[in-house]
Simulated scan of single mutants.
Amino acid sequence: MSNTRQADPTISPDEVAARREDDDLFVLDVRNEDDYEEWHIENSVNIPIYDELLNDEFGGLEDSLDEIPEDKEIAVVCVAGVTSASAAEFLRERGYDAKSMDDGMNGWGRVHVTYELEAVDGVTQIVRPGTGCLSYLVYADNEGVVVDPSLYLEEYQSVADDHGVEIVAAVDTHAHADHVSGGRPFADERDVPYYLHPTDAGELDEYEAIEDGDAIAVGDRELEVMHTPGHTPGSVSLTWGDALLSGDTLFIRSVGRPDLEGSDETDVREAAAELFDSLDRLTDLPDETVVLPGHMSDEEIRPLATTLGDLVADNELVAVNDRNAFVDTIVDGLSDEPANYNQIKAINWGKEPLTDEAASLELGPNNCAAS
């Protein structure tokens, strides 16, 4: 058993994210079982002793020591990094190399991991493993555009700085229901355009409308706009050469759910029919098109990308080629709605103000896929 004494008894969420494939790191989640089942770090192990730790009781942890490896570094996770600190200290006193993950799952929800795309020139993928959200920096000729950015604007500025590009616009592929958009704040802070389809603009008045067939200049290249309604009425997909930024219309193994604008079954069926037509249009693109979606689930490939030909062959929902059968399949397979989605939508539509508390609304699992 290690007798390591750390000068700093904490580990950052970014380091945990970077070491997810590291067999020498054991991630121990001490939250209650229901919270763990709803949302957790992949491959972590749950010992549900959160309530005991709140009362400074360690019997459950002591009884579970056989489940904790003695020869690995332990990252202990809770909600906000408080009870995990107590658990990590308890383990260190017994010789374990244990650290508490800073800010717990709250911190995990803020992690951004950057991936360069070898198959596509001028695109960087930015993944939030804690929320399943993906965004992009598209760049050419020293200019860049951020697509579907989160509220954590410094992440995108850092990527742009690394590539030596100036960000000249922000784009949302739709009005998000699962996370608060950083598009408007980014555009306001830098005095650049914020692009959105008008059907998804709600009560916003400070945006640049984009329609089907429009093009957004990025240096000496262009992002081309395809209106692909279904997930939302104003959903768009963006083509960039041989790449497709598909937003929440098309995922690697699923498609965007059509029920977040209205829960009435008639509305959902109409939206699902629109989605079928949008997917039909997207799948007419060349098979070699590289699909870059707006969300991930449990796919292990990084960066998250595949060719359209492979996606069509593997995506069961895309394979349904009858509109009525597709609509029935979508309606029958809908999962739980994203947490706080009505309030998040209201912020993104300009119906509620963007406050410092907004970031807490999006913490939790991502449920924007149809199944």
Results as ranks from 00 to 15, higher is better:
residue 2 S to G: 04
residue 2 S to T: 13
residue 16 V to G: 11
residue 17 A to E: 09
residue 20 R to G: 13
residue 20 R to C: 11
residue 24 D to T: 14
residue 49 I to E: 06
residue 49 I to F: 01
residue 57 E to Q: 15
residue 59 G to K: 12
residue 66 D to F: 11
residue 82 V to I: 15
residue 84 S to F: 00
residue 88 A to F: 00
residue 96 Y to V: 04
residue 99 K to V: 01
residue 106 N to I: 14
residue 106 N to W: 09
residue 109 G to W: 00
residue 110 R to N: 12
residue 110 R to Y: 09
residue 111 V to F: 03
residue 117 L to C: 05
residue 119 A to M: 02
residue 128 R to F: 00
residue 131 T to H: 04
residue 138 V to C: 02
residue 141 D to A: 13
residue 164 G to T: 06
residue 169 A to V: 00
residue 177 A to Y: 08
residue 182 G to D: 12
residue 182 G to Q: 08
residue 200 D to A: 09
residue 200 D to E: 08
residue 204 L to K: 11
residue 205 D to R: 11
residue 221 R to K: 14
residue 224 E to P: 03
residue 224 E to M: 05
residue 242 D to T: 00
residue 251 F to R: 03
residue 255 V to L: 08
residue 257 R to D: 09
residue 258 P to S: 10
residue 261 E to D: 14
residue 261 E to K: 06
residue 265 E to R: 15
residue 270 E to K: 13
residue 271 A to V: 01
residue 272 A to C: 10
residue 280 D to R: 15
residue 281 R to T: 15
residue 282 L to I: 02
residue 284 D to L: 08
residue 290 V to H: 07
residue 296 M to G: 11
residue 298 D to W: 09
residue 300 E to D: 13
residue 302 R to L: 06
residue 305 A to Q: 15
residue 313 A to V: 00
residue 314 D to V: 04
residue 318 V to H: 03
residue 321 N to P: 01
residue 328 D to R: 10
residue 331 V to M: 06
residue 334 L to D: 02
residue 360 S to P: 00
